[in-house]
C-alpha cells in the first residue's frame, strides 16, 4: 500500500491510506482528547471532542479526527484557538449531563471548561456508545443497546441475555467515561425487574 504523507502540528508523518487523522497523530505521539474512541471498535464519531483543524487545498475546516481519513498533503492542527473553543463548549455541555465524570473533569481542567456553565440535567450517560458497541463488536453478545431517541435516548439491557452473560463479564463498565454508574444501575434494575420499556 502506498504511504500517505501529511503534516500534523508542524511535523511530517507517513500513514497508510486506511488510517484516520487520529491514528496518524497517535503515531507521532500527539495526544488528541477522545471520549467515544476505542481501538478495538469501529470509529463512531459521537462525542466530537477529537475535533481538529485541517487545511487542504487552501481552505481550513474543523473535522472529527477519529473518523476523518488521512489525505496527502493534509495540514492538521490539533490545538488552535478555534479547536480549543469547540472542545471547551463540548465539555461544558457534556458536564451538564455527567457532572461527576472524572474523565470529563480532567479534560475540563485542561480546556478551562466551566462545569456549571449550563444548567444540570444529570443523565449520567453521554451516549458515547462504548458499552453498546463493545458488547456488540467485541463480545458479540448484544446484551445492551440504546432505546428511544434524542434527549430521551438511554442504554437498556436485554434481561434474558444480561442475566446469562453480564455478571461474568462487566467489561463495559470501566469503558464508560461516566464511571459506569449508569451501566451498573441499569443492569441491576434489568436483572430484578423486567425490561423498563416492556413494563
Amino acid at each position: 500500500m502506498s504511504e500517505i504523507l501529511l503534516e500534523i502540528d508542524g511535523r511530517q508523518v507517513e500513514a497508510s491510506p486506511d488510517m484516520t487523522v487520529l491514528q496518524a497523530a497517535q503515531k507521532l505521539g500527539i495526544k488528541i482528547p477522545t471520549l467515544c474512541h476505542h481501538e478495538k471498535l469501529e470509529p463512531y464519531g459521537a462525542c466530537r471532542l477529537c475535533m481538529v483543524e485541517v487545511e487542504s487545498r487552501g481552505s481550513t475546516k474543523l473535522v472529527v479526527s477519529c473518523v476523518y481519513p488521512v489525505e496527502n498533503n493534509l495540514v492538521v492542527r490539533t490545538r488552535s484557538e478555534k479547536v480549543d473553543k469547540v472542545r471547551k463548549m463540548i465539555l461544558e455541555l457534556l458536564l451538564a449531563h455527567a457532572p461527576d465524570s472524572r474523565d470529563l473533569q480532567r479534560y475540563a481542567q485542561e480546556y478551562g471548561a466551566d462545569k456549571n456553565r449550563f444548567e444540570k440535567e444529570p443523565s449520567f450517560c453521554i451516549h458515547c456508545g462504548l458499552c453498546v458497541r463493545y458488547c456488540a463488536e467485541v463480545k458479540k453478545k448484544h446484551a445492551i443497546g440504546f432505546i428511544d431517541r434524542g434527549t430521551h435516548r438511554e442504554i437498556n439491557f436485554i434481561q434474558e441475555i444480561a442475566s446469562k452473560e453480564c455478571w461474568n463479564c462487566k467489561e463495559c463498565f470501566p469503558l464508560c467515561p461516566t464511571e459506569a454508574l449508569q451501566a451498573a444501575y441499569v443492569l441491576s434494575g434489568a436483572l430484578v425487574s423486567s425490561l423498563p420499556i416492556f413494563k
Binding site: H142, G145, I147, D148, I158, I197
Partner: peptide, 25 residues
C-alpha cells in the same frame, strides 16, 4: 408484543438490541 420482537430477532438473525432501538426510535 415482546414475543413478536423475539421471534423476529430469531428468524432474521438480528440482535434484539437492534430491533428495540428501531422500535423505540
Amino acid at each position: 408484543p415482546k414475543e413478536a420482537l423475539e421471534r423476529i430477532s430469531e428468524k432474521l438473525q438480528v440482535p434484539l438490541t437492534r430491533i428495540q432501538q428501531i422500535a423505540t426510535f
